[in-house]
Write a protein that binds this DNA or RNA. Sequence first.
DNA 1: CTGTTAGCGCCTTCAC
DNA 2: GTGAAGGCGCTAACAG
Lengths: 337, 337
Amino acid sequence: MVTIYDIAAKANVSAMTVSRVINNTGRISEKTRTKVKRVMEELNYVPNQMARSLVLQQTNLLFLLITDITNPFYTTLARGAEDAARKHGFRLLFGNSDEDLDKENEYLDTILKTRTDGVLVAPTGDASLPHLEMLRKHGVPFVLIDREVPGVESDIVLGDGKEGARQLVGHLAERGHRRIALINGSPHVSSARQRLEGFREALKLNDLAYSENNVLETSFGPRNDLSEVGAWLDRIDPDTTAIIAGNNFLAVEVMRSLAARGRKAPDDMSIVCFDELASYAEVDPFVTVISQQAYQFGYLGMQMLIDRIKEGEAAGPWKKIVLPSELIVRRSVKTLG
Amino acid sequence: MVTIYDIAAKANVSAMTVSRVINNTGRISEKTRTKVKRVMEELNYVPNQMARSLVLQQTNLLFLLITDITNPFYTTLARGAEDAARKHGFRLLFGNSDEDLDKENEYLDTILKTRTDGVLVAPTGDASLPHLEMLRKHGVPFVLIDREVPGVESDIVLGDGKEGARQLVGHLAERGHRRIALINGSPHVSSARQRLEGFREALKLNDLAYSENNVLETSFGPRNDLSEVGAWLDRIDPDTTAIIAGNNFLAVEVMRSLAARGRKAPDDMSIVCFDELASYAEVDPFVTVISQQAYQFGYLGMQMLIDRIKEGEAAGPWKKIVLPSELIVRRSVKTLG
DNA sequence: CTGTTAGCGCCTTCAC
DNA sequence: GTGAAGGCGCTAACAG
């Protein structure tokens, strides 16, 4: 491996001079600068970030931890985060926790060990509390995205899940649906709780009955075994005419389970959900959704993170950004009566 | 920051003993071991990977560089790569080059600087040659995925683009299509070249005419401005009845452009493409595709990379895995005549 | 303008 | 079993 000492020797200067050339610090004569630069090129020198970080106590590396890299909501978010990080000269690394607390833990371990400068994280759920406390304790700035964690104070970017649920219920009610079911993420995830709460409030608002039986709380992540979803479909109230899915994947799974039963949306069951089904504007898109500004989640979150890093942790109160979502009406809802 | 010296002091041992406990090396009495471990917990000690890597000359970090994090093909691939890396105890970091040579360059820079142990990379195209040579020169093992780069010898995982194109053309021909157009990625990307070549061969095989006018070579990445696609649609041979898209996003863009012209698949134009449109089995999927085993691309590629790292670079000849793809017939093709 | 010294946190080597 | 010395590659602080 080529080091600054190799460069120094060949250029007849000290290592310190080489270091100065690399970092553009101090005063260096133009002559030695060009000489050093030439030698660096000749020897294909690449600075060793490990050594650099060790002495500087900072890595210039930021980390984005998402819960599902195959979900278009998060990948679009990732694009936003990446753009913001690049704009400020930070390098961005990604990790995928897969809605799995253990994997999240592994990545947190990596983050701590590699002394990442900051983290943008969508926590797997309330159980992420100790992980976030760990970050806080070790002085690693972080910003939460998409999900709150009770007991954690921090900058955060959220969607308005309650309002989204209200819009969905309102839309279904308008179309004549009186019995609506909800399949949702885990109650240990704040976004799922928000959506459930909005759902219940909206039912009341529209004079619709809430039925425990019509709510399934499962996981936001994709699953191979659809039997849980199927069994739930078999036991929901028979007069149910519409289902709200807590996210895009759940909607897909409901539709697959329906298909396995020879039923189809919207004729046999109306369906709506949170989040777009594909990152890319779908052709002939079918499902009526509450679309969130995924890119903005990432971009604004990263912005806040970098601000926090630059200002120092203690600068100002925690900021909370709530991004509105938008109802996009498509063809998955049948108009009744 | 807590260091092994802090631990050592509090546990009344030397730093070396602490190091031995951490790494489970050498012989340590059970008593001091437990004592040291207790102190580590008390002080919330986290090993400094920077310092560790600096002396060990290895990071235990692998890097996955893909060209589009919003494309389900690559995210599914990423899942596969991640699973394989985890299985072997490596941490995986992701980067997204966005089909952009400059961004690719930045990530390569990061990779070299951080002394990543190995890289799984989908190059942006033939122009990635110097980047890969850089990796080689610096002794960073890498495995290519999805795309070859002329002039680079390495382990590689590829799809069979020629065969895929043949199947698509064959399928269209069977359905009575005589004039087929192709919208493809850049000719500087090997997968695009393969698909074009397969396309031409298959036309000949089916006694169909090749028309220069009916081929557009653009980029695989998504674009905001669809005017190029639209202009092309306006000038292709008027008797064209079917379009093959070189990847999923191109198919979407064609369909959007068609829609903007008041035309719709499959009635006004049949369309097929490479790669699934969504990571997740689409509900009521519409487009007939050549589906690639995205997960396997990642899993097998990562496997090869880790083998290479463990055996040492010089172990054995380069391996090449060609994954077959599968034609999945859906509803986007009209049967003619 | 340039060089010397010291140390970031850790591990290898060699003592004891 | 355990410890001391030295060095991984780099830069801050101080000299000159």
